[in-house]
Simulated scan of single mutants.
Amino acid sequence: MTGMMLSWTFWALASAVFAALTAIFAKIGIENVAPDVATLVRTVVILVVVAAILTATRGWQAPSTISGRSWLFLILSGVATGASWLCYFRALTLGDAARVAPVDKLSVVLVAVFAVLFLGEKLSPAHWFGVGLIGAGVVLLSLKI
């Protein structure tokens, strides 16, 4: 891999691009589809794609090599992801993608707060200012004006 592809910023930006496409594709795809069914389809596609990637890269790992603590938190993460997706698709059926997606990204603000509270991470005043700007942006984008 190139140096750029080993950078967290490369992968975070790629994630943002795919998340943006997710909102657009989902908004188009949920026409006349129940949001929970749309979530199931999305989940099955993800399962197949990730299984194919693991097979192609020989990245499979024996379940017995994963600690109980890791299992617990991965399962909790999966439950939270599923709940997030169900809520997201429901919101997309009721609102505009250009307003739903930014409100969904309020998760950025919540991650910063939770990371400080639960993981002991530290944010500088400049970082907190940025988090505040994201929060303010979410509020502005959610208003129907």
Rank of each mutant, 00 (worst) to 15 (best):
L6C: 10
W8V: 13
W8A: 15
T9E: 04
A12F: 05
L13C: 03
L13V: 05
A14T: 04
S15V: 06
S15L: 10
F18I: 10
L21P: 04
I28V: 13
I30F: 09
I30L: 15
E31H: 04
E31A: 05
N32E: 12
A34G: 11
A34I: 05
A34K: 09
D36M: 12
R42Q: 11
T43L: 15
A52S: 13
A52D: 06
A56Y: 06
T57R: 13
R58C: 04
W60C: 09
Q61Y: 07
A62V: 00
P63H: 02
G68H: 11
G68C: 14
W71C: 06
L72F: 10
L74F: 14
S77A: 15
S77N: 07
G78C: 01
V79D: 01
T81S: 07
T81H: 06
W85L: 15
W85G: 14
L86P: 04
L86W: 12
L86E: 03
Y88G: 01
F89H: 07
A91D: 02
L94K: 09
G95T: 08
A97S: 13
A98I: 00
R99E: 10
V109T: 03
V111C: 06
A112T: 03
V113S: 09
L119S: 09
K122Y: 08
L123G: 05
S124V: 05
S124D: 07
H127M: 12
F129A: 14
G130R: 02
V131D: 02
V131W: 01
L133N: 02
L133S: 03
I134S: 10
I134T: 12
I134E: 08
A136P: 02
G137F: 06
L140P: 05
L141S: 12
S142Y: 10
L143T: 08
